[in-house]
Design a protein around this nucleic acid. Structure first.
Lengths: 333, 333
DNA sequence: GTGAAAGCGCTAACAC
DNA sequence: GTGTTAGCGCTTTCAC
């Protein structure tokens, strides 16, 4: 089906080795004439080199895997586009895999990447601990792993994340400055480090401002729009007063807005809805979501830098990069 | 670095073949006892089978590639999630690749997929013709290709797309019923089939309703937010009157809204902004975008069905599926 | 400058 | 039930 190097060799009465050399540009060991003949024949015969075989032989693939939890949010798409572009400049290709916020799925996607013997993996985890053994196995095999955005703590790997605490601080300062006092903390799942970091920050900001901590204002929610919708709806039914909601992500935030509007509450006049992170694109998506930008480009840049370093030198000590959140607060009202 | 089948064989004093058989569950030709020993040893030694080698040997990979133009729009993310889940049920894995609306990039991503010898590719193209040779090469090699959403006409491949004409009709009917008469057609690039289809439909709808066709109301725009912004801004500067805009995608639409609001024009009161397709998620993203749903799930289902069929029988005649657009029109005002 | 041979990790006849 | 052999497509010594 596919034309191989052997086919070309036979056609031209050359050996496989010579053809291989000619095709891989080993100009010192092949006469120019042969190179020309081979290249011409390859083109004519529709030769496509089998990277599987090359990788098998070379024991590396010149490919980096990127594993993300979801793609609904603009953040990961942007990250991928940027990282891909940077990797390409360094001669690496990219395989994208998804976990869909599911540990089983993550396991399998992670398996796909290592099965394909990628030279390194950029990963934003869907769970703190669930697949830690897999990560650590691969890491033990000297396959560099760089955690980004959603990182984990217990592994000797490089990581890039943003300063969640500072971001929460900025956002809440902003809300408080605008007179909000009863701020709902829509917590992400506690198996995501970012979520726990933010929760800690939430409490400390309240203290700093001398505001009471009301456990009822903390709601645990899933990561999607229906989750935001459900939680806010039930909060409204409970009759509890609140004047702002800080969500884990944009999807939750959209759900909140939906629930509030359904109840005839004006957003953002009566209740502010804020999403912890957006990107330039997503933060403009719904005009009434107040949001902080996360700097995708810097993150991608750092992550790629780190993975390339680790690939070049697997023994390099891991480093932990914390990117200061852009405290650009976007809102429209 | 990686433990191989050979290592296990040596450790256990068995041959590679036996180990291979045991590991691939060939229970008829290996004693239960051996299977147990091998499996145990493999687990203990941290064996991970090298899929590269398996694929090389088997000349197939049990993997399907999905190549999409972008991931900013909810449509493709949803498609991927759904297709991936269906493929998995059939024992196939998925490699995701992006073209970022760029033909060069598409070429390279397409190359990645074929290099990895995927068993089939689901693709939504970024250009009608640019890489048609590559598609056709692969197709000639009996690697099934299924085009979805953004399809092309000149290749004997299966395809799944939605009924663009009907969608335009429904959306414009809706706008006209609400009194809009001067509808701007924000055309997508003419190298995308969907864009041309819609343009034709736009003209014919006007005729059907006895409305004048004004070429000035047709603007060619790129696919991103700044494009929508730019075009509408310049339209506004020109002083031309219009009371509705139908966009190619959500990003354009967001740009339009931005431009209109910047000019103090109320959306959707003064001017309706409509996006041709959204999904359940995206259509709620900005409350003032009127939008028609595209049925992601059906598309993914059909695309997967077709690719599996072609993989099973590469000789099967290609079929062309047109999915009737869901004419659910979402709007908030 | 070119070829022969070995081998990457695995599977699949074919023996025994 | 298990081992031997050959080979997937390629690169890379090592000869000549």
């Amino acid at each position: 089906m596919y034309v191989t190097i052997k086919d070309i060799a036979e056609k031209l009465g050359l050996s496989k080795s010579t053809v291989s050399r000619a095709l891989s540009g080993d100009y010192l060991n092949v006469s120019q004439e042969t190179v020309d003949r081979v290249v011409e024949a390859a083109a004519r015969m529709g030769y496509k080199r089998n990277e599987l075989a090359v990788n098998l032989r070379k024991r590396k693939s010149m490919a980096v895997g990127i594993l993300v939890p979801e793609l609904q949010t603009a953040f990961y798409s942007r990250f991928i586009a940027e990282a891909q572009s940077l990797l390409q400049k360094n001669g690496y290709r990219t395989i994208i895999a998804l976990s869909n916020e599911d540990t089983t799925w993550e396991k399998s996607s992670f398996g796909l990447l290592s099965d394909y013997r990628v030279d390194g993996i950029l990963i934003s985890v869907c769970h703190n601990r669930a697949n830690i053994e897999d990560y650590s196995d691969l890491n033990g095999k000297q396959i560099p792993l760089v955690f980004f955005d959603r990182t984990i703590e217990d592994l000797p790997c490089s990581s890039v994340r943003s300063d969640e605490q500072k971001a929460v601080l900025s956002l809440m300062d902003h809300l408080i400055a605008r007179g909000r006092r009863r701020i709902v903390h829509m917590a992400g799942p506690d198996y995501i480090r970012n979520a726990s970091d933010r929760y800690v920050a939430y409490q400390s900001v309240l203290t700093q401002h001398g505001l009471a901590f009301d456990p009822e204002l903390v709601v645990k929610a899933g990561l999607y729009r229906p989750d935001g919708f459900r939680e806010i709806s039930s909060l409204l039914r409970s009759g509890l007063f609140f004047d702002a909601v800080v969500c884990f992500n944009e999807m939750q935030a959209l759900g909140c807005i939906e629930a509030l509007q359904a109840a005839g509450i004006r957003v953002p006049e009566d209740v502010s809805v804020a999403s912890m992170y957006g990107t330039e694109v997503s933060s403009l998506v719904h005009p009434s979501i107040t949001s902080i930008e996360k700097s995708v480009l810097r993150m991608a840049e750092e992550a790629v830098r780190l993975i390339l370093r680790q690939i070049a030198n697997p023994m390099a000590p891991p480093s932990e990069v914390v990117i200061p959140s852009d405290v650009v607060i976007r809102e429209s009202s």
